[in-house]
Design a protein around this nucleic acid. Structure first.
Lengths: 225, 225
DNA sequence: GCAACAGAAATCTTCGAAAATAAATGAAAT
DNA sequence: ATTTCATTTATTTTCGAAGATTTCTGTTGC
């Protein structure tokens, strides 16, 4: 793997997890220090991330971590529903046994991790398995463009979820595990209408919870600052 | 504008228009010669284009113009329908007078150009105005993500249209101008269902024409080669 | 004839320095 | 005190060369 590829993965990772805060300037000297490489591979990685909207760039004024906003969260989630509902229907109509067992296996792994407590309960494994479960649902849609846009939007929305997860700021009156289970069941039953409705609801509830948690956090910041 | 930005625009332009043929290796020495610059800005541009799927890259083996395939054309058009139908509905429900007059103006400019013959009838102006018309329809959807994906998919499908347009290989039994007119009318009438249906039909007809033209061209190539 | 290999050539990747531009500092004038 | 301007500093952008890897070519051995 080339240094530019390593830089791309490291930067993407750190931006999505919020280790590089939204809006923060990405100075080449700092990044060179942080990742142990020269400017060339870093600039290549930053250009890729700019095209993916995880980074913003201004001519002769360098790069920044792309900012977050509630408007963008709503936009991204709305579009995810449109695209993923269609992809889920396509998967349901075309998926084979391998696709179906992929869903079962991804759901099982996700539930195992969600049930863990204490030292074993780390958010990053949970997040990876959550991503894998939602990807498994769409895996048989047979549309590379759809899958690319799914990944783009998943990364965009993950940036909003992670700070909330880290703060354990999600409302408790919701059984996400049950939602995943029902969604998987409807999908495996090849009930496209029901699965689509469950998927949409799942995302709409999530965006409401996230927006609520973010708004209350912002309110606190305003009160204390 | 920096050299990297110039390189990005020039490469994107040349790839979409087919001046750099699909699959062709993009050697840095050649590109440096062609565009009059060193490796650094070229590599930055190529990394952006890789993220946009106009260029493919393999570790330590350089870049190529992304290949074309009928499968990808179908994939891209299918997804355009899903995304643009939704965006058109949103525009229809939210669009103001400026949006509506943007459509009227874009359609007029497109029709004027389509009617031109001889020296004034150049394909590039026509193509630009076609793009502008379709963008104008969606302009009021208020979704930056949707508009980005529209641009990505438009560029992807434009690569299939241009060689066919250049070969004047489109079937004549079709009044595209009338299709655009009816689509604009239904949109301005705020008839979301009718406009969506017309948009879908428009794209499905186009993809069929394109696929037909490409297949017959490939058949000829097989016969002569 | 053909596979395996060594060496040469071509190409991609990365670095370090130079050039170009933007941002910060401080002095002079009003 | 505030603005203006020149100077310095910080930062981005680009080049040219060096390093690393792949690809080509010709040779050897079977």
């Amino acid at each position: 793997m080339t240094l530019a590829e390593k830089a791309y993965e490291a930067l993407r990772h750190d931006i999505i997890r919020g280790e590089l805060a939204p809006g923060r300037p990405l100075r080449l000297a700092d990044l060179g220090e942080r990742y142990g490489m020269g400017f060339s591979p870093l600039r290549e990685a930053l250009n890729r991330l700019q095209a993916e909207r995880l980074v913003t760039a201004e001519s002769l004024r360098g790069f920044r971590v792309a900012p977050l906003s509630l408007d963008e969260l709503h936009d991204a989630v709305s579009l995810r529903i449109v695209i993923e509902v269609e992809a889920l229907k396509a998967s349901i109509s075309q998926g084979d046994d391998a696709w179906a067992s992929g869903i079962v296996s991804a759901l099982y792994a996700l539930n195992v991790q969600a049930a863990r407590t204490g030292a074993e309960a780390d958010i990053w494994t949970l997040e990876k398995r959550h991503h894998a479960f939602h990807r498994a649902l769409l895996a048989a849609c047979n549309s590379p463009w759809t899958l690319e846009f799914f990944e783009r939007l998943y990364a965009a929305t993950e940036r909003y979820r992670i700070p909330v997860l880290l703060a354990s700021a999600l409302p408790v009156g919701r059984d996400v595990q049950a939602e995943h289970g029902a969604l998987a069941q409807a999908t495996l039953d090849r009930d496209a209408e029901k699965a689509s409705a469950l998927l949409s609801q799942h995302y709409l509830r999530t965006v409401e919870d996230l927006a609520g948690a973010i708004r209350s956090k912002q309110a606190k910041l305003r009160a204390s600052g």
